[in-house]
Design a protein around this nucleic acid. Structure first.
Lengths: 365, 365
DNA sequence: CCGTTCCTAGTAACCGTTTACTAGGAGTGA
DNA sequence: TCACTCCTAGTAAACGGTTACTAGGAACGG
């Protein structure tokens, strides 16, 4: 058997194969350094040389290797975002904001959807850590668990020590000293405002429905809900609070159950619009009219809120802006032109506003 | 000014800084090759050595650098997906399928949303090319343009020549010889089936509403629509076809306009469920009842279809499965265990089924 | 006691860029 | 004519892994 002829570097195996910077340099008759400079435009190159290089790149169909670039340089031009469910409009809108702001800074967006499991969340952060993402954004409510917070804090430190950063989006920040930004919206204030809206209409027997019990989002909304009662020195019957999940199914079943249990209420505060959709379905099934028989409010103001009939009164959360702000926060200080004071703000809170529509009326006598 | 002391390799600047494989090797008293082998588990390593390395990795909080790995090895463990709008449930569900299948193969998912522009689509493919993604999935209807197809074909060739592949998802394949897979659903069949459903109910004056005129999705659905008429040897009034866009707003306005123009129709075929939502709003505004006064059907079967009242009769598209199939197609042949015959199938078509709900009735008188 | 074979683990080349340094030549003022 | 400064462009050392090759010992059969 004849020995395999040594593949000389000069002759590439596949004429169609990916071109390297060396191929371009050879064809243009310059060094790789020059090609790199033309590509990055960060160093003076004579016009004639630049032309030759550009022509060579075009002729060869040269595409830079992002990995080699990330390895040699130090920024990866990628931001990572971890959400719990990409088809949920709440997350989808935030993701859109993240992606658009990332694009504006010339970066790509790695989207990870955990479909629930909080261990998956951590696993994704680790994967993003391996990718050396310029910023990692953790979206949505956090499980309120000591051990979990510690695990997140550790990741935050690792990210920070490699020049990247962790951004908590729509969830409470970590303890002091942990290098993480938090970009939140006024969860408590929004809940209090819309509860007050219900209170103003005369409702006091309000059924609070939804949200996983251990999630920070749930506790925050519930806190706002109670705050509104307290502000008016009103009592709220604790048995009218039912937490558990955020789904439409769940809202549907719990509403039916509450009705069957003979609970006494004139309005329902659905923990989010999706739960409200379930509430609507259940009420419709029992021939209860909204808002004549029962008033309903939701939270988030995702598109389904206006699709529902009557249109749902809910709390608008600036989802897309939340995503954008998260990217800005995460990238602050990494950009050469960064505002030196950007670091002073470890946390941002965006406002919420209640969108009054047609699902709230006076309580039925 | 004192000269900067040369930073010796032995003493790293920041004790918290990212650890390299060399740090681990040093601490475990082995070579980097051994650490690499322990990490990848693709080469025998004595148990005691493995333990020492694993302990060192844990002590140091070692996280492999995905870029170095991608550069030295050849697979990037990333798949890219380009959609036109991530908040659109049609794309979100496909993206979810892609992400879950990618995860199952141990890969991360780079999601790009073009927000319209077809030039952005190409730009994203180029970016994904730079990332050397293991597969690039292009989702959704394509603009039917010669030049555009050529541009996509060129990218397909580049991808193929670097061991990656392009997958067209929910859009027609490229010409023969272009190395791209196509994973489609039966767009024409679904449209024909649901049109036939309308025809069976007695409607023949059907207003077809929606879809950008140049998009392949639009032409395919329209083709199915016409096919159903042809199959029954029925004529369809061409003036009852209005294409233009896929939005809710658009559906709303066009319905109003059709009504104002005094068009004669008893049913509306909305090109997708979102357009149907707009149709519902317009009809409601004019006090027209569904299906008593006018029947409506949609396409895609996204969640809003069941939220609408009455529930929308529509065509179910296996969106998530479409995404999964796309990833499988793109990765086929790259996996070591790949079926050698996998390459024989350059195209897959998934079936669609019509979901009969409550928005279709007999035509009024 | 020696030649083999089997395990393990180390050596070092290479993946494709970036960039600190170095160097050659042109232009310039004395 | 010479010493300098300016422009450009090349050299080569990283960046952090992977892996083909090589090599040292232990086990073993003869």
């Amino acid at each position: 058997m004849a020995a395999e002829p040594p593949r000389s570097r000069a002759r590439r195996r596949d004429p169609e194969a990916a071109r390297t910077i060396r191929d371009v340099a050879a064809r243009a008759g310059v060094s790789t350094a020059t090609v790199s400079r033309v590509v990055n435009g960060n160093y003076p190159v004579a016009a004639s040389t630049r032309d030759a290089v550009e022509r060579a790149m075009r002729d060869l169909g040269y595409v830079a290797n992002a990995h080699a670039r990330a390895l040699a340089g130090s920024t990866t031009r990628v931001v990572g975002i971890v959400v719990s469910e990409i088809v949920d409009p709440f997350f989808a809108y935030i993701a859109r904001g993240v992606q658009s702001e990332a694009l504006a800074s010339g970066r790509l967006c790695l989207v990870c959807s955990t479909q629930g499991g909080e261990s998956a969340e951590l696993r994704f952060v680790d994967l993003l850590l391996e990718q050396r993402a310029d910023a990692v954004i953790l979206v949505g409510g956090a499980v309120e668990d000591k051990e979990y917070f510690a695990a997140v804090g550790q990741r935050a430190r690792q990210l920070a020590s490699s020049g990247s950063s962790l951004v908590l989006c729509g969830r409470p920040g970590l303890e002091d000293g942990v290098p993480a930004y938090a970009v939140e919206y006024d969860n408590i204030g929004g809940a209090a405002a819309i509860t007050d809206h219900l209170l103003s209409a005369g409702h006091t027997k309000i059924l609070y429905l939804g949200g996983p019990t251990t999630l920070s989002t749930t506790t925050a909304r519930l806190r706002g809900f109670r705050q509104a009662f307290a502000a008016r020195r009103l009592e709220h019957d604790p048995s009218l609070v039912r937490t558990g999940a955020f789904g439409r199914q769940w809202g549907y079943q719990q509403t039916l159950k509450a009705l069957d249990d003979g609970l006494d209420f004139t309005a329902i505060f659905a923990a989010n619009d999706i739960v409200a959709a379930g509430v609507y379905a259940a009420l419709r099934e029992r021939d209860l009219r909204i808002p004549d028989d029962i008033s309903v409010v939701g939270y988030d103001d995702v598109p389904v809120a206006t699709e529902l009939q009557p249109a749902l009164t809910t709390v608008r959360v600036p989802l897309e802006e939340l995503g954008r702000a998260a990217v800005r926060a995460g990238l602050a200080g990494q950009e050469p032109s960064a505002d030196p004071f950007a670091h002073q703000q470890p946390m941002t809170t965006l406002g919420t506003v209640v969108m009054v529509r047609d699902s709230v009326g006076p309580p039925r006598r």
